[in-house]
Design a protein around this nucleic acid. Structure first.
Lengths: 220, 220
DNA sequence: GCGGGATATTTTGAATACAAAATACAAGAC
DNA sequence: GTCTTGTATTTTGTATTCAAAATATCCCGC
């Protein structure tokens, strides 16, 4: 009998460290620019330097950590320049995701999107920022899943990690929030009519507007 | 007096290993799918396992190596599915590069591009594949440099590494080569008129055509 | 008191050592 | 002869150790 191979989850320490550290960095607990002492983290996590150093290398590949030879590791800063470089890429990739998604979207998925869109509007109306964010993220995920391109998903996730810290710093201003809701209405429309090119364009603009709002807030 | 800080090149072993291994992988010397024994590579490079393992992790982040816990490393295979996932992303990013480049292109750069375009056509006419590839790569680099987005450059480089091995396997067929030359004429035109949207579209199509040609050849 | 330089301490880079898991091998049951 | 099961070997994951470079400290001259 041919049994299905099941991957037993025996994760190396390394992987746990990467995840844990990533959370600490993205959430801002480890402040951007702060120097990272290997031994300090080793003591905190009760592991030896070997797996920790491997974890730092992985995070460096993601751009969350900067390694300087013989001078140790530091949490990557996030400058205006970084945002201005990252957001156009985010926009291009989100647009691609939208295009691809339109080729695959099922009626069921569009129904789900309609539901999420309603939740998003509702959350905005009652000023529920957490609910809005959740609906927003869910729509994102829905599009990305429909795009059915794992590599694209992975790259967007990694890129998102780089800029999420900046988003943590600012909260949606009232006027930008309203504009974002309006944009989401158009996003849903394009999904419903499965117009990939239009959806791509809107998503790209959506991201570009996000960048502008972010920069405005960071400057002040 | 404030002196500019100059980074003295004291590269860790790790970095050398990454570069060397990447060459071996991209050039196909380390065959896709082949299992990598840590000790064997350690013996070959005369280093200990510590820096070698770190190098393997970096390459895994690039997608050139696959690490399976407790089961070691293997050179990443490159399947048709991988190509079909990677090329649309490549297309979207190249298109973005083209758009951005059009905003910055100087007259001098366009003159250089004209020269390269002439070399490319010339190389095609006399059947000089190496010369063609060189001109092709130079035009690419010119656009990417003009885009002036280091993160985009880095991501494209990494993504290119994933698929370059496939390109090594097939050589440009006559008909595809002619088509590519025709596409390059349109690429130059769009650059000359600094029409970012058009340039983006052409580049995107250019990449999509490349994928089709590649898949046709791989199937046979 | 301040600056320069020698020395001590810390910290990183790399090698080695050890434990646990996976693979290879061999002996015995059927 | 083939399959199972137990054992030996290899290979990976992690810890520890050692060396070299970077940083901090202290002492001395001025």
């Amino acid at each position: 009998m041919q049994l299905e191979p099941i991957a037993v989850a025996r994760r190396p320490l390394h992987d746990d460290l990467v995840e844990h550290l990533r959370d600490l960095i993205v959430s801002g607990t480890l402040a951007p620019g702060s120097k990272v002492q290997e031994q300090a983290l080793c003591d905190q996590f009760q592991v030896s330097r070997t797996p920790l150093r491997e974890a730092l290398r992985s995070l460096a590949a993601e751009g969350l950590v900067v390694l300087t030879p013989r001078r140790g590791a530091a949490i990557a800063e996030i400058t205006r320049k970084d945002l201005e470089e990252a957001f156009p890429i985010l926009g291009a990739l989100e647009a691609l995701a939208g295009e691809l998604a339109c080729k695959n979207l099922t009626d069921a998925e569009i129904a789900t999107a309609r539901q999420l869109q309603a939740e998003l509007v509702e959350a905005h109306q009652i000023g529920d920022l957490a609910g809005y964010s959740a609906a927003n993220a869910a729509i994102h995920t829905l599009i990305l899943d429909a795009a059915a391109n794992p590599l694209l998903t992975q790259m967007l996730k990694s890129l998102d990690g780089r800029v999420r810290r900046a988003r943590y710093m600012v909260n949606l201003s009232g006027v930008r929030w309203s504009a974002a809701v309006a944009e989401h209405a158009r996003i849903f429309e394009a999904m419903e009519s499965r117009n990939g090119d239009v959806l791509g364009e809107i998503l790209k603009d959506h991201i570009a507007n996000k960048l502008n709002a972010l920069i405005c807030q960071l400057e002040s």
